[in-house]
């Protein structure tokens, strides 16, 4: 499979993603500067974590208008996979590729620690290798992670099985105590209606090797790879 990892000025997790795709998953990965206007024939694009364009004005607000974004929207429209991690999730929401927005954490603190998220839908190319209800231990690292959308959108997300990850206790129970940032309905990750674009605040690339304390995040990358194999996109 061919992965493209989009680099904005201020991105800082692109090399972690590149490492996981190339060295752990054994697939081809390119870094793509945000000023590119066109994309090669990528199977999966990753928008990594960081502070794109300094997160000035709002997280993702400026990045959403980077030259590469039109090509990313086109890729998504054609059914290509797009994974937004942390800041990448914020950019995808600003771009309207995913519903909702990410607001300042209720605690007003920057939070950097492992959390537990429950897989509430395995019906995406990003979560198919997980089991329904599986609890993953994956780190978060953000100041603006409070997912918000209006009541109508939330009802739509629930009805369409678009809430893929929720913050939970280690036992898998969604509660206020297990919600690190005040996210609506404990939402940690959502997908679009077509299910080919997914955004999540936790960092699966930081939980993809034993050395890092958890390999739970690798399940997302393995899901993508299985999807690619089924679609005969695997190379090498």
């Amino acid at each position: 499979m061919r992965f493209g990892i989009v680099v904005f000025p201020g991105s800082n997790c692109e090399l972690d993603c590149h490492w996981v795709v190339q060295n752990v998953l054994g697939q081809q990965a390119d870094l793509i500067w945000h000023k590119e206007n066109t994309l090669k024939d990528y199977d999966c694009l990753i928008l990594p974590g960081g502070f794109a364009h300094g997160d000035y004005l709002r997280t993702g607000a400026i990045a959403r208008f980077s030259p590469i974004m039109a090509a990313i929207e086109d890729h998504a429209r054609r059914g290509g996979l797009v994974l937004g991690i942390c800041n990448g999730f914020q950019v995808l929401c600003e771009a309207g590729l995913l519903p909702g927005a990410l607001l300042r954490n209720t605690s007003l603190n920057f939070i950097c620690r492992p959390v537990h998220v429950r897989v509430d839908s395995t019906a995406t190319p990003f979560s198919a290798a997980c089991t329904q209800g599986q609890v993953l231990c994956v780190p978060i690292n953000h100041n603006e992670g409070r997912y918000y959308c209006d009541a109508e959108t939330l009802a739509h997300l629930r009805d369409n099985d678009q809430v893929i990850f929720r913050y939970v206790s280690p036992e898998g129970k969604a509660s206020d105590a297990a919600n690190p940032n005040g996210s609506l309905d404990n939402i940690a990750g959502v997908c679009n209606e077509q299910r080919n674009v997914l955004g999540l605040m936790p960092h699966p690339e930081r939980a993809a090797e034993e050395l890092l304390g958890s390999t739970n995040g690798l399940l997302l990358f393995e899901s993508i790879l299985s999807y690619g194999r089924a679609a005969s996109l695997t190379r090498g």
């Binding site: 004005l57 709002r58 208008f65 607001l103 959308c149």
Partner: peptide, 8 residues
Amino acid sequence: KLLANPVI
């Protein structure tokens, strides 16, 4: 287009 996000 830019200064405000109508979602929030």
